[in-house]
């Protein structure tokens, strides 16, 4: 199945009216339940309680909120870096294995895609609880003497988010690595390059689009992540999504929650546009099913 010209129009053309008619349900749906709600939310952020940017000023002027933004960026970055270091070797192993081994690794990476985020978050809650396995293990090895608090910490959030998001890093890197002709590695070896040099000067540069694509995908997803920080994180160390939820549901401060959504959405959109050339969703996600 050729992926070239993936979303390019081809074949016998329909009339303008026919195309409009076929696309109309999509445009109506996206206009009604995506564009309009999002734009009206953003407009609330600059019109209520009064017209102006005071909601945005409040984010920047209040140290607590600035801290939440910085913490969110830091956790998302950490999760992306950890995911990269876990994912790259797995992608390499997927490319270089064959038969049952390749199927096994692929199944392990894909299975979490199909298992509920809530189930996996609950699993981490169990693993990390005071009398949980991780505490038992750490005591058995002698790293700690008494159970320590692992749950409801930033560490718990980072570990669980890495667990959930890492597969999204594997697939784009795997896609890039698979496209490198094996001859290149052999050519490097013939020219006298050792495995390390061949990796850093041939494999890595050619895999860069996949690495960058996966990194940005994980980073952007992590920025707006809600479920895991809400269930495993500490209420004193919120991320932006949990702060938005708190402002909306507990303090009923819609305009301020709207401004936080505005900051998050603008930031994410800007990064996406900046990297739009490496960030090909159709390539990254099309082969997933």
């Amino acid at each position: 199945m050729s992926m070239a010209g993936f979303l390019q129009p081809d074949g016998r053309n329909l009339s303008k009216a026919g195309i409009l008619l076929l696309m109309a349900p999509f445009f109506l749906l996206i206009g009604f339940a995506f564009l309009y709600p999002l734009l009206s939310l953003l407009s609330i952020s600059v019109t209520e309680p009064q017209t102006g940017l005071q909601n945005y000023e409040r984010i920047l002027d209040t140290p607590v909120y600035g801290k939440v933004l910085l913490r969110t960026l830091w956790i998302a970055l950490l999760v992306s870096i950890l995911s990269l270091f876990l994912a790259f070797p797995v992608a390499m192993a997927m490319v270089s294995s064959s038969g049952a081994m390749a199927v096994f690794i692929t199944a392990c990476i894909l299975l979490p895609f199909w298992s509920s985020v809530l189930v996996r978050t609950a699993a981490w809650a169990v693993l990390l609880q005071r009398n949980g396995i991780v505490n038992d293990l750490l005591q058995a090895i002698g790293i700690i003497d008494a159970p320590v608090r692992l749950l409801y910490t930033q560490g718990a959030v980072v570990v669980a988010m890495t667990h959930v998001l890492m597969p999204f890093m594997v697939l784009p890197i795997y896609g890039a690595l698979r496209n490198i002709p094996p001859d290149y590695g052999r050519a490097a070896a013939i020219c006298g390059a050792g495995p390390l040099r061949s990796f850093f000067e041939v494999t890595l540069p050619l895999a860069m689009p996949g690495v960058l694509g996966g990194f940005i995908l994980v980073f952007l997803t992590a920025l707006g992540y809600f479920i895991t920080p809400a269930l495993l994180g500490s209420p004193q160390e919120m991320m932006i999504a949990t702060l938005i939820s708190q402002q909306l549901r507990e303090f009923l401060d819609w305009p301020f929650a709207a401004a936080l959504v505005g900051v998050l959405t603008l930031f994410v959109t800007a990064i996406t546009l900046l990297f739009s050339r490496v960030f090909r969703f159709d390539r990254m996600l099309g082969g997933q099913v």
Partner: peptide
């Protein structure tokens, strides 16, 4: 691109 939390709040 738009985070699910943004769509959810909207």
């Amino acid at each position: 691109v738009v985070p699910h939390i943004a769509l959810a709040v909207a």
